[in-house]
Amino acid sequence: MPLNEWIGLLFILAAAPFFLAGSVGLLRFPDLYCRLHALTKADNIGLGLLILGLMIQSLSLADFLKLLLIWLLVLLAGSTAAHLVARSALRQGRKPWERR
């Protein structure tokens, strides 16, 4: 396997723990708001590393642009969706969990 594929693989492997942590946060965090933190932030970095790894493996400009675009679109969609879910919950009067 060429060197760039190995380096790409490292990034892809580095991405996996973030997806895992995002899912663990989704299960362990106490309320909707905290879970949104886990999903948006951890998955954003997970996907970013995954995409970086794939870019390094492919080394083609067309793939590069497409992957970059995918990351940006997911970032925008994820952040916007998190905001809208949180807003809707807040306006419905859902009280955020607090540590006592």
Binding site: G22, A42, G46, W97, E98
Partner: peptide, 17 residues
């Protein structure tokens, strides 16, 4: 991403929202 991952995986769940 690192901050929220650390909190999610930490046994004591160090959050104070």
């Amino acid at each position: 991403g690192i901050d929220v991952s650390r909190r999610a995986l930490h046994p004591k769940l160090p959050i104070d929202p």
